[in-house]
Structures are given as structure tokens and as C-alpha cells.
Amino acid sequence: MKKEVLIKKGAEASLYLQNWHNRKVIMKKRLSKKYRIPELDKTIQAQRTKRESQIMHKAKEAGVSTPIVYFVDLQNSTIVMEYIEGKQVKQILNEMSPNERTKIFTCIGELVGKLHAAGIVHGDLTTSNMILTQKGDIVFIDFGLSEQTWEVEARGVDLHLMKRAIMSTHFMYADECFKAVLDGYQKVMGKKAVAEILDKIAEIERRGRYITER
């Protein structure tokens, strides 16, 4: 491997940009967490590395773009994957017109629908984990907390967390954005599934702390 450039030190992993067999790749190295005891740390690292690479592949089968996985090294908790040219949705949202925002969030909703229809929940659907490419496609990244499940509960939590992420980061237009997400989601999952998931989200929110409607 040639020289590597650290491009992002996230909470979970460090991302290095490097040239790997003449390909521009991202090397995602999960960091050993010094605050965790080694036994717990190793289990979590290996589990998430394995799951992430497997689910990234499954997502593609479901029609959701994710980086191509070139190499997985479980010993070192490392995944070598395709570098995606583009910008995080979080970075560009403020520059968008309301129409563009609606369009992009409808598209995101469709993609989440496709994942859920294929039995995948992403687990961390923040706008930092979605990249808009120059061609206008949306690529989902960071499947580190994803799960394979068909449970409505898990899908509900997935969307609930997304709603919360939008509300805390893009509170100025959170309502319109989440509505667009649901519109897109409905295109894939159908009306009945959306009604079901909305009930679930409401139930999850009621389970939370200090909800006035309870």
C-alpha cells in the first residue's frame, strides 16, 4: 500500500484516502477505543466490520448505491472501499432551494424504502452519511450500525432516528424534509407500510422520556 492521507477522523473509524492498485480508495479503519476494555472492544470491532461489509453488498442488490468493497481485513478491523466523489448532504442542504430539498429527500426516502424492503436497516441515517455525487446520485455510506431485519420495530427506529437527526441538525426545514422522506418511502413500500411505520414511530416516541401526549 502506498502513502495514505487521513481525510476524516470520525467517532467510530478513521478514513484514509489512498491509491490501492491504481484505484482511488477509502481505507476505513475502525479504531480501537481506549475507553473500552479490550474484550468488549474486539468483539464490537469485528462484529461491525463484518456486518458493514456484508450489508454494503446486500444494499447494492436492493438497488441502493454504496461504495464497492474491495478488501476486508477482520484482524485489523479494516475495509478498503471505493472512493465516492461528491458532497455530504449535510454540507449542501443550506444552499438548496426548497424544491431541490424536497426532491433530494424524496429520493432519500425511496432509497431507505428499498433498504427496508430488502430487510436492511441502516442504523445511522444522518445527512452526514449520504453523499450526493456529481451525477446527482445519492450514495449511502457508513453501514457500521446496520442490521438485517424485517421487523417493523427496527424500521421504525431507523426512521425515528433519521427524523431526530434532521430535527437536530436541519431544524429550520425539518418538517418538509421528513415529509418528503415519507413520500419517497411510500413510493417503494406502499401506503399500508407507511401507515404502519408512522404508528410505530409514534409508539417509539411515546416510549421515550416525557412525551406530553402520553
Binding site: 475507553y35 473500552r36 441538525t169
Partner: peptide, 18 residues
């Protein structure tokens, strides 16, 4: 204790990065 506090620390770190 290790499990509960590691969970808390993990989400704090994630929020800090965010």
C-alpha cells in the same frame, strides 16, 4: 458497568464528532 458506560461514551463521542 463496562457495558453501560461504554455505550454512553460511544454516543457522546459520536455526538461530539457530529
Amino acid at each position: 458497568q463496562e457495558t453501560a458506560f461504554s455505550m454512553l461514551t460511544e454516543v457522546t463521542e459520536r455526538a461530539l464528532a457530529h
